[in-house]
């Protein structure tokens, strides 16, 4: 079966597209799928850093498209997960170096060799976004439980519908259960009520995401991380398994709180 292309996008910057891309890719690779990530954020590349592969970049996406190297040469294999590959973005160029049809051609070339092709979209609704969604089979929209991020997600979902690429699937990232409980933060239900799309995952706020990003190791590799578990669930949902949505409050019991205190000490 030829591989499927998943594009991860958001509209607003800083909601966790790159983190989501890296972790979903790693989650799929963990269950033995052959996965490749493409960083489409040309000029502001990040995905290589989050995956800890920055120092191994020789060729990038623009080199492939402009024919300066073969496709194989630009693929970087992950150190920890042998089934995970990355095509990094160019840092010294901009979004106009790539066209939507370039991306379609590139993905068609990759489909026979991979099960999943993940594209990390840049923020915004311009050329970079169009490049990222043009080859997509599945589009995942990442948002935070904040009014501004939800507004941008709504806009993006509208654009995806207009391109007839829908229906988009939603990940709500950085949920703080305590704040939701007190009514200080939009709840997942509030967000879903407005956006009216299918839910793919709920990611709780988790400090381990920051530490693992800084170390260049996706948080799905951390057995104990709540965010890691949420991303592993997303990986399974993408492959068609029915994983129930655990209400986020329940994931954090008294004992895990105590355990956390000890670990910190």
């Amino acid at each position: 079966m030829p591989g499927k292309v998943i594009t991860i996008t958001s509209g607003k910057g800083g909601v966790g597209k790159t983190t989501a891309t890296a972790n979903i890719a790693a989650a799929l690779a963990l269950i033995n799928f052959k996965v490749i990530c493409i960083d489409a954020d040309i000029g502001l590349r990040n995905l290589d850093v989050v995956l800890g592969l920055e120092n191994r970049i020789v060729y990038d996406l623009v080199d492939v498209i402009e024919g300066r190297c073969r496709l194989r040469q630009a693929m970087i294999r992950d150190k920890r997960l042998p089934e995970l590959y990355l095509i990094p973005a160019a840092q010294t160029r901009d979004k106009s170096a790539v066209s939507p049809s370039d991306m379609v051609r590139l993905c068609d070339e990759l489909r026979p060799d991979f099960d999943w092709i993940l594209i990390d979209s840049p923020a915004g609704i311009e050329r970079g976004f169009r490049n990222a969604i043009s080859p997509a089979n599945i589009i995942v929209v990442v948002t935070n439980p904040e009014i501004s991020a939800v507004r941008d997600a709504d806009r993006i979902i509208g654009l995806i519908e207009a391109e007839e690429k829908g229906p988009a699937q939603l990940i709500i990232n950085r949920i703080k259960p305590e704040m939701v409980k007190k009514g200080d933060m939009l709840s997942p239900d509030d967000v879903l009520e407005l956006l009216a799309v299918d839910l793919l995952g709920l990611i709780p706020e988790d400090e381990m995401v920051v530490t693992s990003t800084n170390r260049g190791a996706p948080v799905v590799l951390e057995e104990k991380s709540r965010a890691g578990q949420a991303f592993r669930n997303i990986g399974q949902r993408i492959t068609g398994e029915k994983v129930p949505f655990v209400p986020i409050e329940e994931q954090r019991g008294f004992f895990t709180q105590i355990g956390k205190m000890f670990r910190k000490g």
Partner: peptide, 23 residues
């Protein structure tokens, strides 16, 4: 449903069956 960023202008009446989201 009309999502953020969509604009309808019409010389006449407009009926929407669906939501009109903020934006």
């Amino acid at each position: 449903t009309l999502r953020s960023g969509f604009r309808i202008e019409y010389d006449g009446h407009i009926i929407v069956i669906g939501d009109v989201n903020p934006g």
